[in-house]
C-alpha cells in the first residue's frame, strides 16, 4: 500500500474520538446513537487497513461481525429510544435520570 498503515490508523482514531465527543456532548438520543455508529465504523476502518497491510482476510470477517453487531445494536437502541420517548414531552437524555443515586 502506498499510503502507510499509520495514516489509516490515525484517521480511524480521529473519527473514533469525534464519535466519543458526540456521545458525551449531545442530548438527543438519536444523534448519540449515530455517534456510536461513527465509532463502530472507525473501528471497522482500522480493521480493514490492518487486514490489507497484512493481507489477511480474517480482518474482513471481523468487520462483517462488527457490522452485524452494529446493526443489532442500532436496532435495539432505537427500540429503546422509541419505548422510552414514545409518550415523553421532549426527547432529551437528561430527562431520563432515573438512575439518580
Amino acid at each position: 500500500m502506498t499510503v502507510e498503515l499509520t495514516n489509516y490508523v490515525m484517521l480511524s482514531a480521529v473519527m473514533f474520538f469525534i464519535g466519543v465527543v458526540g456521545v458525551i456532548v449531545r442530548r438527543n438520543p438519536l444523534i448519540v446513537l449515530m455517534a456510536i455508529e461513527l465509532m463502530f465504523n472507525a473501528a471497522n476502518l482500522a480493521l480493514v487497513a490492518f487486514s490489507r497491510a497484512w493481507v489477511n482476510n480474517a480482518g474482513h470477517i471481523f468487520v462483517f461481525l462488527v457490522v452485524t453487531v452494529a446493526a443489532a445494536e442500532a436496532a435495539i437502541g432505537l427500540a429503546i429510544v422509541v419505548a422510552v420517548f414514545r409518550r415523553a414531552k421532549n426527547v432529551d437524555l437528561d430527562e431520563v435520570a432515573g438512575m439518580h443515586g
Binding site: 456532548v25 437524555l93 437528561d94 431520563v96 438512575m99 439518580h100 443515586g101
Partner: peptide, 9 residues
C-alpha cells in the same frame, strides 16, 4: 451518580 447518561459517558 446524578443519573445523567452524559455523566456516565
Amino acid at each position: 451518580q446524578n443519573g445523567l447518561v452524559r455523566t456516565y459517558a
